[in-house]
Amino acid sequence: MFSLSGMTAAITGGTSGIGEAVAARFAAAGARVVIIGRRDGRDIARRSGAIAAIRADCASEDQVARALNEARDVLGQELDVLVNNAGVENTGPMIADATATELQRVFDINTFAVFYGLKYGPLVLKDGGSIINTASVAALMGIPGYSQYSASKAAVISLTRSAAVELAPRGIRVNAVCPGSVFTPMLPPDHPEVPLAMQMCPLGRVGTTDEVVGAYHFLAAAESRYITGQALAVDGGIVAGVSLGTLEAVATKAAAG
């Protein structure tokens, strides 16, 4: 059940964080995996069980196209799964203080990298394959100071839905995973988002990569072959409603007067 034995996969942003954890999960489930990222990922590939690491800046259209072709060549066949996971963090500035330059940088890696993956990925993907895009719970709700990041990830969900419809005749499924706050190098324990997430999250804590990778595994496996065009939140319940921690904080502040 949920075996990936004999399957092939490429993962962008696979040299760190969620991407690295997904690579390890896929490899453990029997897939042959290639990771793609900006840094030298050879040691990470060995650690995660991937068969190779390809260096590429996923904000570059030419480099994405080249890396996906290389992944197919390294694997020796077309891909079963493509995970468009490369991303960058951006939190803090309100819209009034944000800059167009920073907005462009965030969109270049968070949105355009997914666009390039959706454009060139199907050229190296088998019919009946699966594409999984990493969006964010921030795409599903408004959060002060997250406008640029949220907009870039909301665009990923929109691209996911459009691609799901366009690729359906080939049986290629396209879905998005929307993680909440998850401890990674982009979100270390001392990040200012951590106490906010702990209060807002109904489960009362920040997630770990091990708690997110199961969604990618499911969407890659044959058992999810009737699911496409969906955005799956893995967020500890944040989009479900107001947490007790938030209500208690508001009540305490009101009582203090």
Rank of each mutant, 00 (worst) to 15 (best):
residue 126 K to L: 12
residue 43 D to Y: 15
residue 253 K to N: 11
residue 24 A to W: 03
residue 42 R to G: 15
residue 224 S to E: 00
residue 89 E to W: 07
residue 137 V to G: 13
residue 167 L to K: 08
residue 46 R to F: 07
residue 212 V to L: 06
residue 190 D to L: 02
residue 181 S to G: 14
residue 183 F to D: 15
residue 44 I to M: 15
residue 227 I to K: 03
residue 211 E to P: 01
residue 7 M to T: 10
residue 32 R to D: 11
residue 47 R to S: 12
residue 95 I to R: 15
residue 149 Y to R: 08
residue 202 P to R: 01
residue 34 V to P: 15
residue 186 M to V: 11
residue 3 S to D: 09
residue 122 P to R: 05
residue 110 N to A: 11
residue 245 G to R: 08
residue 30 G to K: 12
residue 186 M to E: 13
residue 27 A to C: 08
residue 187 L to Q: 09
residue 29 A to V: 04
residue 144 P to F: 02
residue 66 R to L: 10
residue 228 T to M: 07
residue 220 A to K: 00
residue 72 R to D: 07
residue 84 N to A: 12
residue 206 V to M: 06
residue 221 A to C: 05
residue 224 S to C: 00
residue 203 L to M: 12
residue 8 T to K: 08
residue 93 P to M: 11
residue 237 G to D: 07
residue 30 G to S: 09
residue 219 L to Q: 02
residue 226 Y to I: 04
residue 126 K to Y: 02
residue 60 S to A: 08
residue 7 M to K: 14
residue 198 M to C: 13
residue 175 N to I: 03
residue 28 A to H: 05
residue 225 R to W: 04
residue 186 M to K: 09
residue 87 G to Q: 08
residue 118 L to P: 10
residue 166 E to Y: 03
residue 143 I to V: 10
residue 153 K to F: 02
residue 172 I to G: 06
residue 223 E to I: 00
residue 93 P to N: 12
residue 113 A to H: 10
residue 74 V to L: 14
residue 116 Y to W: 10
residue 126 K to N: 13
residue 132 I to M: 02
residue 75 L to D: 06
residue 250 V to K: 12
residue 79 L to H: 01
residue 20 E to Y: 02
residue 178 C to E: 09
residue 102 E to R: 14
residue 113 A to M: 10
residue 82 L to W: 07
residue 40 D to N: 15
residue 250 V to L: 15
residue 181 S to N: 11
residue 145 G to E: 05
residue 91 T to A: 15
residue 13 G to Y: 00
residue 247 L to D: 13
residue 10 A to D: 01
residue 183 F to L: 15
residue 91 T to N: 14
residue 41 G to W: 11
residue 167 L to I: 08
residue 108 D to R: 15
residue 102 E to W: 01
residue 183 F to H: 14
residue 75 L to C: 11
residue 21 A to W: 01
residue 108 D to L: 15
residue 209 T to G: 04
residue 218 F to P: 00
residue 225 R to T: 04
residue 253 K to W: 10
residue 57 D to E: 05
residue 128 G to L: 09
residue 22 V to T: 07
residue 100 A to C: 10
residue 140 L to R: 04
residue 252 T to P: 11
residue 249 A to I: 07
residue 176 A to W: 00
residue 232 L to Y: 03
residue 111 T to L: 12
residue 46 R to H: 12
residue 232 L to M: 08
residue 47 R to P: 07
residue 133 N to L: 06
residue 139 A to R: 01
residue 128 G to Q: 08
residue 38 R to C: 13
residue 233 A to F: 01
residue 102 E to Y: 06
residue 256 A to T: 08
residue 205 R to S: 07
residue 116 Y to T: 06
residue 89 E to P: 05
residue 209 T to H: 02
residue 156 V to H: 12
residue 207 G to V: 01
residue 129 G to Q: 13
residue 117 G to V: 06
residue 49 G to L: 13
residue 194 V to D: 03
residue 144 P to A: 05
residue 229 G to I: 05
residue 130 S to K: 11
residue 5 S to Y: 03
residue 218 F to A: 02
residue 55 R to T: 11
residue 122 P to V: 03
residue 185 P to N: 10
residue 2 F to G: 03
residue 110 N to T: 09
residue 52 A to W: 06
residue 109 I to W: 03
residue 240 A to R: 07
residue 200 M to D: 06
residue 52 A to N: 13
residue 179 P to R: 11
residue 7 M to V: 04
residue 137 V to R: 05
